[in-house]
Design a protein around this nucleic acid. Structure first.
Lengths: 263, 263
DNA sequence: TTCTATTTGTTCGTATGTATG
DNA sequence: ACATACATACGAACAAATAGA
């Protein structure tokens, strides 16, 4: 009945995502602005809403857009260009130091976000989250390495059971037990003065310089799964990484989908 | 008409992908074997083929299975090892703050490595290098952002001519003028107390917390092209990055280290 | 506060296209 | 030629979240 033929060799959704990719790169849809609604795009491109959704999913996987239920899809980034790439294996590298360290859980409690927290997380004040406080120390000499404050949405509280009996990081527990995938981590590194509350935990004088690493773990659709903030004493912690020049062959698979659909 | 109810809160395709994830991990579907066909799975799970496809796409994105048209879906791996990649465009991100800042060159002189420097660079003491000292400030309010000490091998001294007239980072100059390619960057981030010498440059009291970023630029054969160390005042500088889940096809060969070393 | 319209998310059914054996 | 299997596409409906009246 309908013409399902691929006119130019590539699929319709690939053509649509390619067109939108260009529109975003060219600034027609600026970063931060909203895309037209899916039904609108469907009419504009002359395809079904499902096809539009397939195209938008590609852009979402590239990190270019983000969909929000009840609101729309907004542009997150104009380009996905990788020249140097830093990659790591979550279990091995991200918490590599975990193997020679031990964690003690100071507290694990239900909290309501106050205004400051809500503002920082871009959430609503009063939302219920779990808050875990831990101190990580060296297993050899028991030197404190990090004081961490971890926030987990209330709905994921079940992963916190038997927390002291597992050695896995919480984001790994959420992935395994809740069946979700963490696709993006935002990491902010700053230097701070170690606060009065952290100083005794880290066994250093208050006011000492410390390295603060805040991480936010996001899922496929931008859901926030965990927020952690760790304070490390300056003398005992060094964050080092190696960045390698990314070869052009290593472009994301989704892009090759757009250009040459079949090899 | 139909029962679209979410039984346990999560979507059906998420439940299906989770179930298949377990089946693959448990060995019910061995690596190299084929999954049942999509219609078969649809009947088995009591969902539509579309839902099965959504679940299979998740597994495909995780690199666990691979679909082949006309054949079926193969199991590629039993376990999902997450790999996150941080990618950036050298000019945009690595020195992104350069666009709204200005650099003043305090000194540019020839030095001989002393024992401490030689040890840190893993070079011989007495080697001749160029040393450049700069201060970077905001163009708006002239707030100091970074005090940098940059070392360049004596042989590359020619790129330092007219240094104050260019806005490009030195590693880019070396690449362009010496015809080499920087393939690897090592980056170490630590918190320190701002020293007596840096404090006046950054217009902060000595002893304040500061973020130290040391970078080493290597060529294809491991040649060291540049070493830079920047000290940033804690209040004005925040090193943030976004790590995205890397698709298995990409497999960037980068190595990273996250270490806690003790003095 | 409640109601309503809008928008994305999910799911179903159905049909056709394309690659494989 | 034929059957099988995945890939693509359309239409329709409901669910959930949101924004505004």
């Amino acid at each position: 009945m309908q013409s399902h033929a691929s006119i130019s060799g590539t699929s319709k959704h690939a053509q649509v995502s390619r067109a939108l990719l260009n529109d975003i790169a060219s600034g027609k849809y600026a970063v931060g602005s909203m895309l037209p609604s899916e039904p609108t795009l469907a009419v504009a491109f002359g395809v079904s809403r499902q096809t539009i959704r397939t195209a938008l999913r590609t852009l979402r996987e590239l990190g270019l857009i983000e969909g929000q239920q009840g609101v729309g899809s907004f542009v997150r980034a104009a380009q996905f260009t990788a020249r140097y790439a830093y990659s790591f294996d979550s279990a091995v590298d991200l918490l590599q130091y975990a193997v020679s360290t031990s964690v003690s859980i100071l507290s694990c409690e239900e909290i309501s976000l106050d205004n400051i927290q809500a503002d920082r997380l871009k959430r609503r004040a009063g939302e219920r989250w779990w808050q875990i406080q831990t101190v990580r120390s060296s297993q050899q000499d028991h030197t404190p390495i990090a004081s961490s404050r971890i926030l987990v949405p209330y709905a994921y509280g079940s992963v916190l059971k038997n927390l002291d009996q597992t050695r896995e990081p919480i984001f790994a527990l959420i992935q395994a037990q809740m069946g979700v995938t963490i696709t993006e981590i935002w990491q902010d590194i700053t230097a701070t003065s170690i606060s009065e509350t952290d100083a005794p935990l880290l066994k250093v004088p208050a006011g000492c310089p410390g390295l603060s690493i805040e991480r936010r773990y996001f899922g496929r659709n931008g859901e926030l799964f965990e927020v952690s903030r760790s304070i490390h004493p300056a003398e005992t912690f060094n964050y080092s990484m190696r960045l390698r020049l990314a070869l052009p062959e290593q472009t994301p698979a989704a892009i090759s989908n757009l250009t040459a659909h079949h090899v």
